[in-house]
């Protein structure tokens, strides 16, 4: 039994193209503990989005293992992967995050509804979580009536409401201005630490690494460097602002 919430072992993802076999992800092994918030960074084409897709059980690795709470995702069938995404993973995406015809609170409650766990306590929890994210006055607003930052915060609440083991965020700040981006990531990091979830954020914006515990840097499909500790991250990435 692994001690990590998430662990990958020698994960490889290849694609066939006219010019030969492309290694989108090449032999990546990593571990993320419960309560740890990790950033996955790298230039375009480094394989971070492919890696995220495999961790999200949306894509099967060509080889290797992905273990979530000890369960191997790589051998799962479609139905099992859908159930796993619903029960054990929380998501926020870059854009089009929310269901446009559901209000803020309905979007959050949707995860409980999908898991058959929408009861009075769940409804109350959804409202409390949104209130903590500063959306107490926006519960019944539709996504179209909210700003990008507010929508991202609703998405964060939706990603956490069903107590998932793993929370994944794909460029959560891409459509936000700097101030709102900081607020969103700081809140996200706070909740992940507080609730003891394993969190992985894919980002281009190295400034956002200020709030994470570790930074995994990918290049050409490989995990090339791991930055650990606040000081190293701040010195090497945030203030340096370079890959």
């Amino acid at each position: 039994m692994t001690a990590y919430a998430l662990e990958t072992k020698s994960v490889i993802k290849t694609y066939n193209s006219d010019s030969g076999v492309i290694h989108a992800v090449d032999d990546v092994s990593l571990q993320v503990a419960a309560g740890e918030f990790v950033a996955l960074v790298g230039p375009s084409g480094s394989g971070k989005t492919t890696m995220l897709s495999m961790l999200a059980a949306l894509l099967q690795p060509t080889s290797g293992q992905i273990l979530l709470d000890g369960q191997d995702l790589s051998g799962m069938g479609d139905r099992e992967r859908v159930s796993l995404r619903r029960e054990k993973i929380g998501f926020t995406f870059q854009a089009n995050n929310l269901v446009p015809y559901l209000s803020a609170v309905e979007n959050v409650e949707l995860m409980l509804r999908l898991n058959g766990k929408l009861d009075k306590a769940g409804k109350l929890r959804a409202r409390e979580l949104l209130a903590r994210l500063g959306l107490g006055e926006r519960l019944n607003n539709l996504p179209g009536q909210m700003s990008g930052g507010q929508q991202q915060r609703v998405a964060i609440a939706r990603a956490l409401i069903h107590n998932p083991s793993l929370v994944l965020a794909d460029e959560p700040t891409a459509s936000l201005d700097t101030e709102r981006a900081y607020q969103v990531v700081e809140t996200f990091a706070g909740l992940i630490h507080e609730q003891g979830r394993a969190g992985i954020m894919v980002t281009h914006d190295l400034r956002m690494c200020e709030f994470v515990d570790r930074v995994l840097m990918m290049r050409d499909g490989k995990l090339v460097r791991i930055y650990t500790g606040h000081d190293e991250i701040m010195k090497e990435l945030v203030q340096g602002g370079r890959h």
Binding site: L58, F91, F93, N96, V99, L110
Partner: peptide, 14 residues
């Protein structure tokens, strides 16, 4: 398409 993609990604079955 994107909206249905989100629904499926968060675990809504076909």
């Amino acid at each position: 398409v994107a909206q249905i993609g989100v629904l499926k990604a968060i675990g809504t079955a076909n």
